[in-house]
Design a protein around this nucleic acid. Sequence first.
DNA 1: AATGAATGAGCCTTCATTCAT
DNA 2: TATGAATGAAGGCTCATTCAT
Lengths: 200, 200, 200, 200
Amino acid sequence: MPKLGMGPIRRRQLIDAAIASIHEYGLADTTVARIARKAGVSPGIVHHYFTGKDDLLFETMRQLLADLRADVVARYASARGPFERLNSVINACFGDVQFSPEVVAAWLGLYGTARQSERLQAILTIYHRRLRSNLVSDLRALVPPQEAARIAEGIAAMIDGLWVRYALMGGVDDPLIPRTLTRDYLTAALAQFDNKKKTR
Amino acid sequence: MPKLGMGPIRRRQLIDAAIASIHEYGLADTTVARIARKAGVSPGIVHHYFTGKDDLLFETMRQLLADLRADVVARYASARGPFERLNSVINACFGDVQFSPEVVAAWLGLYGTARQSERLQAILTIYHRRLRSNLVSDLRALVPPQEAARIAEGIAAMIDGLWVRYALMGGVDDPLIPRTLTRDYLTAALAQFDNKKKTR
Amino acid sequence: MPKLGMGPIRRRQLIDAAIASIHEYGLADTTVARIARKAGVSPGIVHHYFTGKDDLLFETMRQLLADLRADVVARYASARGPFERLNSVINACFGDVQFSPEVVAAWLGLYGTARQSERLQAILTIYHRRLRSNLVSDLRALVPPQEAARIAEGIAAMIDGLWVRYALMGGVDDPLIPRTLTRDYLTAALAQFDNKKKTR
Amino acid sequence: MPKLGMGPIRRRQLIDAAIASIHEYGLADTTVARIARKAGVSPGIVHHYFTGKDDLLFETMRQLLADLRADVVARYASARGPFERLNSVINACFGDVQFSPEVVAAWLGLYGTARQSERLQAILTIYHRRLRSNLVSDLRALVPPQEAARIAEGIAAMIDGLWVRYALMGGVDDPLIPRTLTRDYLTAALAQFDNKKKTR
DNA sequence: AATGAATGAGCCTTCATTCAT
DNA sequence: TATGAATGAAGGCTCATTCAT
């Protein structure tokens, strides 16, 4: 929990510096000293604004989640109808932010660390639940609940799978490719359902 | 004469111990001492059989890749035709081995570390290329090259996405679910192509 | 604000502790922990003020050179004429400082290590060049250049030879002995030249 | 003490390998493993022929002394009269062997280590005493005892001083230089005495 | 609020030595 | 005699954390 009034600016500086350090050195080689240097402050300051290194890193990962959520919400604002809302999610997950080297490094670092920490694990759990619930929510406006759950599962896997493949392979040349593949999957799934309906 | 031929045995012991340690403590908190203790040997012996900790960890990750490959190859043996071969890949990727906590921990650790090491990066690159080439190879017997590439991309993403989601959420209750979802995706993609063909 | 200006103080403390450790344990058995203990600080602090052990040891050896130089310069201040200046050098090289067990241990340690390190080698090179140039400079006021070079070579050898013999034999009972022997060599060399001149 | 009959060949192999290692890595970085590798044997063998590493190193240093002695004795054989015998000593001390990089490295290593070990110290003590006694013995045939002692002291210092300077500066271009300087010192000292005698 | 000096635990690695074979 | 596997004790160094200022 952020200690309000105690300097949200410093906190954000340090979180950004942490992300920068994870990008440059990797999570394993990210030290308090390196974060502080990148933030242009002294190493000791970290313990004024965070319980310790783990806390700063936790808040850093939470920021990733918050940024992604904010991006989705922003895109929702201009979306008309459930299909466009689904696209908002897809586009946010494959947006420039999510494929930036810094963010990629941080997420992948989280992947490799979450198992050892309940708090970090929780961040990923929230991410997964939220993604699924966002998808299901809009899919239910298009197909029956059971179908919605199944399709949401598939799209979520598609999103994570394409992201992780591109992330691990060192970025993506054309960000349209994962979007297109995922959207094709979505439209195919919806079409398949429509066909079933017609057949009946 | 000292005990001869201890090399391969000790090496394998240490690799297994490394995996066990990554499972129990996480990659970041896996130390040479812990690996050695799990292997029941002294810490110094590690440098008898490996250049150093990094080397042991690299070989450990390489073992993951080799084990997966061996699993696929074994399943290929009893596969009849391209469709069954595609299923061999899917089943191997979602086999009990790949979802065992030890293997999950190791792969996820690799995800979070590969960016910092060319050698580790290479392991993931080989994994990705091999998966894709395996899929494309059999899909070409069923659909035209261009379609094969597109479908392979989708299946690979599906495999990685489902695996990573289940892996991060702490394993999978029913290993049939990811297999079914992926196979549905495959059959749908093939069916879609057949429809196109018929329509023409 | 933390304690300011601790840098130079700690650095000198550690250098002195290093010399003390070399004296007590020998250069080969001088460890960071031992140096720190002698300095009354924690082992980790060494890397706050020096790049590492090698750096501290290098600075330690450099201090030897600086101390010797300072001693010579101080004696120069009260020297009248070239002959007295030559004696200043001789007296400094055979002063109490240079025969103190700590300084002896450090110089001898340097002798045995310099071959493996360019930086340490450089210290000895500077010492040798400086000694020779000091001698030559004053001898030129007494004899022709060529003679000056030859005599300087001889005196330098005399100084190093007597020092090393006494150093290796565990110090010197009467520091006047090496001084006298060297001064005799000097006066004999000068007399020899004067004789030549007269003969001509 | 060499264990006779237990393999003097192996012992000598190991001593030579030790010298080679001291030359290549320095005394501080000379390990049992490196010595063994240079000797083409297994690391464990060292403890069959020597009490341990220290013992091997001690015997190595003792070999240096023995080699120098043998060289002097060999030159004595063809020397006619005390003056030539004195030259034998000078020539041996400045012979190719004593200026070879391997021998230089070993002697300098001994310089830096002797203070920590009585046994090693003893080697240097023997060297110093022997050199002095050799010189005095022959000088007594030329000058009165008191003069002989003084001149011997000077020549010994000259020998050690020139050797150490050339050794530390990375070898000697012309081995004649130190010989000439020392011989000049000797002849000058003898001439000086003759003059005194004549004057009287 | 902020600094950076200082601590001390822990890690990777090296190495002399031992020992079963 | 000879091997090289194996041990276990340090050693140098890093680093999160604390604290006087």
